[in-house]
């Protein structure tokens, strides 16, 4: 039991990294990774929303959609639930925990339509995970996102001082740096099989 959970966690953090391997959540990855503190804030907010979204969407799917033959409504229901949830959390944080809202709140609205969050909830259903496995996989995906953001923020601070050809300035150079970071993650490909099986 524990072993399979660890395998799910390691796989989603390192091997199937959402940003660098599945291309989900590219926009915040490229947009908010300029400064390390922003990258960490965004990463933590994503972990938080992913866990929350899974916590709500998994029961909705299993106990509401599946018994009533409404599986085809999955996409609509999930995106609406996630959007409403994020808004609600933001309002609650603003009212009761202003400190946390200051550091985390600014990133929350950005995540509403983030494909990584919707992606993880749908993947949990298609992979047939049970509730605990789903939560662990969401945590792993969020941690993987944070790891990629933090690593890439370091790479980008070096890029700022680089002098590329004129047409490569800005986004193209960032994307090529992302390609190299993504290559580095290929090194993890066999890690799960070798460590746990």
């Amino acid at each position: 039991m524990i072993k399979s959970l660890v395998i799910i966690l390691m796989t989603s953090v390192l091997v199937n990294n959402y940003v660098l391997n599945k291309f989900l959540g590219i926009c915040p990855f490229l947009g908010v990774s300029k400064k390390l503190n922003q990258a960490v804030g965004m990463g933590v907010a994503v972990i938080f929303v992913m866990l929350l979204a899974t916590l709500v969407t998994w029961p909705i799917y299993k106990f509401l959609l599946l018994p009533n033959d409404l599986v085809f409504m999955q996409t609509i229901v999930f995106i609406l639930v996630i959007a409403a949830l994020v808004q609600l959390v933001e309002i609650i944080l603003k009212r009761y925990i202003p400190g946390l809202h200051q550091s985390l709140g600014v990133y929350l609205p950005l995540i509403t339509t983030n494909c990584a969050v919707l992606g993880v909830t749908i993947n949990n259903i298609t992979d047939n995970y049970n509730f605990i496995e789903s939560m662990v996989s969401s945590l792993g995906c969020g941690l993987g996102f944070l790891l990629a953001m933090v690593l890439f923020a370091g790479v980008r601070s070096r890029l700022e001082t680089a002098k590329p050809p004129k047409s490569f300035e800005g986004l193209p150079l960032t994307l090529i740096a992302a390609a190299i970071v993504s290559c580095a993650f290929f090194g993890f490909a066999g890690i799960v099989e070798n460590l746990f099986m």
């Binding site: 391997n21 047409s167 490569f168 986004l171 193209p172 994307l175 090529i176 993504s182 290929f186």
Partner: peptide
């Protein structure tokens, strides 16, 4: 594979620039 996607996309945007 994944790195190729980032690389080709970066090169194409550079070309458009």
């Amino acid at each position: 594979m994944a790195p190729g996607g980032f690389f080709v996309f970066g090169c194409m945007i550079a070309l458009v620039n």
